[in-house]
């Protein structure tokens, strides 16, 4: 992945990339989220309190339906907590906003806009001039190595390329927080590994806070500073693990002893939790 490794030397607006460093302090304070009401009420997230430091890379790991996406969506501002409060850099989250960039699982690029227009969308609706939008788009096209595809439409790109555009589009607003909802879940295993390395390189440039939702243990350990394991019914964080692997990381790290150790520990916790849920349902 030499193409992405050398971004630092290639991105001309290098200084501005670091603009988001030091920001992105997320506080989740006693948040619970209930969908529906009365007998149909479903508790998606149970009183959760978390503190995510600026610049931290956090993975939320859990099975489908455990409420991890709901928690992410509440940080994004799509879902309003039933109780408690979420704040970013001291400001309460009341709805979606450009300070929190979002990367979705797939098919979230505007199909009628070219790659350049997709990336420039945030700055454009934010009221920046056409020249500024153009130079921001160029910076980020270069960052994700898709300059050649600037005028292509999303449908002409592979899944991996589309997700790189998705990341570039979210970062073009210089958000303090990057929220990623299983962004590589729909990619094939090969492409996914490449994307993980690529993301780490981009993140090291940016220093922005990342909250990354996944159900893949390897992915979580490879990427994160810290892993939050969530369990289903009711959705809550059951473990908060530090990842003691040095950075920069390359794929070889996945065969290291520390990696294996953490993986074993994650699986153990998840297994215990699954068994508990299993017994609960059998009753």
């Amino acid at each position: 992945m030499t193409e992405v490794v050398s971004i630092a030397s290639r991105v001309s607006a290098h200084e501005t990339l670091r603009g988001s460093a030091g920001r992105g302090h997320i506080r989740i304070d006693g948040v619970s989220i209930v969908f529906g009401s009365g007998r149909a009420a479903h508790q998606a997230v149970t009183s959760t309190t978390l503190d995510i430091r600026p610049g931290e890379f956090v993975c939320i790991l859990g099975p489908s339906g455990c409420g991890k996406s709901t928690l992410l969506n509440s940080i994004a501002g799509y879902v309003r907590p039933s109780t408690g409060e979420i704040s970013v850099d001291g400001e309460a989250v009341s709805g979606p906003g450009p300070d929190r960039g979002m990367v979705f699982q797939q098919y979230s690029l505007f199909p009628w806009k070219t790659i350049r227009e997709n990336i420039a969308f945030g700055p454009k609706v934010g009221g920046r001039s056409a020249t500024e939008c153009g130079s921001i788009a160029n910076t980020f096209l270069e960052m994700v190595g898709l300059t050649k595809f600037a005028n292509a439409y999303p449908a002409e790109l592979s899944g991996g390329m589309q997700q790189r555009v998705g990341i570039a589009r979210a970062l073009a607003n210089y958000p303090s927080v990057l929220l990623m909802d299983e962004p590589f879940g729909a990619l094939d295993a090969q492409t996914r590994l490449m994307m993980q390395e690529s993301l780490l390189n981009i993140w090291s440039e940016f220093g922005t806070t990342v909250v990354f939702v996944t159900h893949d243990v390897d992915e979580a350990i490879f990427l994160a500073d810290r892993i939050l394991i969530m369990s289903a019914s009711p959705g809550s964080v059951i473990a908060d693990l530090k990842v003691p692997l040095a950075r920069p990381r390359s794929l070889e790290v996945e065969t290291s002893e520390a990696f294996m150790e953490l993986k074993r520990s994650c699986h153990e916790k998840i297994r215990a939790e699954s068994l508990r849920a299993f017994q609960q349902q059998a009753q």
């Binding site: 450009p98 929190r100 979705f104 098919y107 979230s108 505007f110 969308f121 945030g122 934010g126 929220l179």
Partner: peptide
């Protein structure tokens, strides 16, 4: 598509 509306919202539209 709802996901596109959400994307646009999070980009500040």
């Amino acid at each position: 598509p709802e996901v596109l509306v959400r994307a646009a919202k999070s980009l500040g539209a």
